[in-house]
Design a protein around this nucleic acid. Sequence first.
RNA 1: GGCCCCGUGGCGGAACCGGUAGACGCAACGGACUUAAAAUCCGUAGUUCCGAAAGGGACGUGACCGUUCGACUCGGUCCGGGGCCA
Length: 866
Amino acid sequence: MELRAHLPQNIVGLGNRSRMARYNAKESEKKWQEAWSRSGAFLTPADSVRPKYYVLEMFPYPSGRIHIGHVRNYTMGDVIARFKRAQGFNVLHPMGWDAFGLPADNAAREKGVTPHEWTYANIAAMREQLKLMGLSIDWSREFATCDPAYYRHEQKLFLDFHREGLVYRSEADVNWDPVDETVLANEQVIEGRGWRSGAAVERRKLSQWFFKITAFSDELLAALDGLERWPEKVRLMQKNWIGRSEGLRFSFAVSNGKKIDVFSTRQDTLFGASFLALSPDHPLTEELAAKDPALARFVAECRRVGTAEEAIEKAEKLGFDTGLRADHPFDAGWKLPVYVANFVLMAYGTGAIFGCPAHDQRDLEFARKYKLPVLPVVVPEGADPKTFEIGDEAYVGPGRLANSRFLDGMTVEQAKDEVAKRLENTGAKRTVNYRLRDWLVSRQRPWGCPIPMVHCPKCGVVPAKESDLPIKLPDDLSFNVKGNPLAAHPTWKHTTCPKCGGEAVRETDTLDTFVDSSWYFARFCDTTAEQPVNRAAVDYWLPVDQYIGGIEHAILHLLYARFVMRAMKQAGYLKVAEPFAGLFTQGMVCHETYKDAHGNWLSPDDVEKRSGQALRKGTGEPVAIGPSEKMSKSKKNVVAPEEIIDIFGADTIRWFMLSDTPPERDIEWTDEGAEGCWRFVQRIWRLVSEAQGLPPPGAPVAAVEGAALALRRAAHRAVAAVTDDLASLRFNRAVAQIYAFANAISGAGPDVPGAVRRETLETLVLLIGPMMPHLAESCWESLGRRQFVAATPWPAADAALVAADTLTVAVQVNGKLRGTITLPAGADDAVAQATALAHDNVAKALAGKKPRRVIVVPNRIVNIVL
RNA sequence: GGCCCCGUGGCGGAACCGGUAGACGCAACGGACUUAAAAUCCGUAGUUCCGAAAGGGACGUGACCGUUCGACUCGGUCCGGGGCCA
């Protein structure tokens, strides 16, 4: 890192006479971290009369080192935790490890360590790094999801959910990730690719374990409206993902004597139907394919594409005419061809549709390809049905029915209702359909929570006995095998049937790691509970009051956790259904990118900047500066948090993470910005440590006027503003307020009484406390205070001092600023008007004329209209 | 294609209910201190025009239009960037 090179010398200890005054972040931070730890300052009392506040950051995967994104995330959470503690809340702020998952498995294969060793070594390293940040975490509650003491409870929950009918095993078409060699849930397939590996997902028919998340489809959707402290964007994404649609389920009689059930949300367009289409996975398709090799080949072709909607959506629409003909429900003489089509999903609705090409884009593409009729039956208001034509785009907007016999002239809504009414006599049903699919939770990987089920040749699939929990992973897995090492283990899977006592084998699939992270926040409420959760503790602490993490979990983790809470509620473990009352999604940390003349990425360590020019260190070759992008190894634009902490200290990096950029946006890391933060740390320290002639702590502040009063007003205004900004997570504004306040202190003259200067400095120290906690403690100590800032109440703003006594009011003529006047607060309109009219520039503009109108907004503005 | 978010100095951004646009920070420039540098302190700074200066004028929040005494803020149309869904 180039930082160290061009920093002032005395930062690394070679200072001059002012060296004594320098704030030594390294020593100070170590000192206070130890002092906090010794005194148990951040342990959470078991119960309290104070109101509770649960603040949580998404727990990290133990990759081995903290990333700068973690620093931003945990800094924000820590500011909230310290702020709420100072405000008198009983705060729970825990930390743990999302410790199961593929990287450990891969490390085991590549490095010959066990996943267990690799993971716990990483945890130890990361814990040390996190502790350097000075986070106010209750470390006594730490756990890793790979601890048997945690996953035994997850196994218990699995058995409970099974008992509750929320777990089932089923053979289904599933997403297979060929690189990670495991199945994936729908949520984990992004644009047809595995969320971790990025490999194109294949479709396989396998027997897998599912959580019945669809049992809560309606509730998960409806409850989104109540999540007022969630970003609108996340709620919308979940809403779209759940995808509720109302429609009609009805059937077509087919020429072979069978019936085909379809689901449609557009039954109003039934007279525009030109074909029926079956999913390649439809039972009727399978039946037909058994006798028709051409159809069988077509089905096999379709299956090559994954089950992801995106993949199917983008693929060319293909169909196979079965030769069957279906009767139109309103006209048995009207025959529709029955196709098998690749874009019809078995999992959505009934796996069969009627195609109305004029009003559905996919149907239109299909009809054009196979030369089927395209008849518009809904025309926009004002258009002539005789001339209205469909080109390359289906018409999906509102309008009136046409070419539809008894429906003609109706609106879309009226027609939907009419069709439903008429078909209900013949067995049609109005139904609600969801896009959400059940959650596939089994994985063919060894480093996960074993699914506590047993396969018995006599009794079938049987739940393990609770007394056998935890079903522990073996510690002697061999990774030089094809497939799942857990399944290949010579002895582990052999057991006895819990029902009949005969020989049986364990399930060798493990649970999706998203199951682990779907209830850890509940476990934090009492990590010693004998049951998965302690009822009293979860009733007290949940929901999490403020949850903070990345937007990338908008659907996956945040939807799964909402489901698992509901499942736990159903199983009788807790009373709340929503895990996170407040959600904040923070932006990423970015950095400029650098490339040499050959187009190779360069690390910031290899680049030095001189007067705006970037040069390669050592060689002096020119370096091209690219846009600021998310830090990534591939682009080499990463900075290591531990190096920054080593150079500047934790308070500086914390302050940087909170400054300037609003927390929900992406922030750009710059060395200059970090140096600016470090300068401010030093400046605060100087203001406090060099203050002379202060009275002892607790001295009363007498009534003052002039500069001293102005300074007190600045202090109280800062308290009011920072309190407000922290409460609403506007950290960048709080930072700006504190800078302005520090400027006011620096600018105050020497005649300000000592008591006022003490009051003001103490206020400053308390305000920075949540953001730069070590510096605050050192300053507090320097001011002669004995208690921790971390144990000191938040300052209160005196309303009388926050309100100004005189105000600068703008004077406009015809809406343009012509000057300002100073008025006492609350001056009445007549005074304001008279003062404004007397202003030189106004008099000049008036030139003796009488204004037509004068608008006075008290304490703000006077506008004179000519 | 639909829906949503965003667009303000060289840069990050502030401006809360429509009421002095550019707070605060970064970068820059000038000065003080110093043998010199670092650090620190003081000061300048949206663009442009008039003026020797003190001062003053015009323009200015992606573009245009509208509502209003007054618009970064509200409404409409468009342009550009991003996200989600298709």
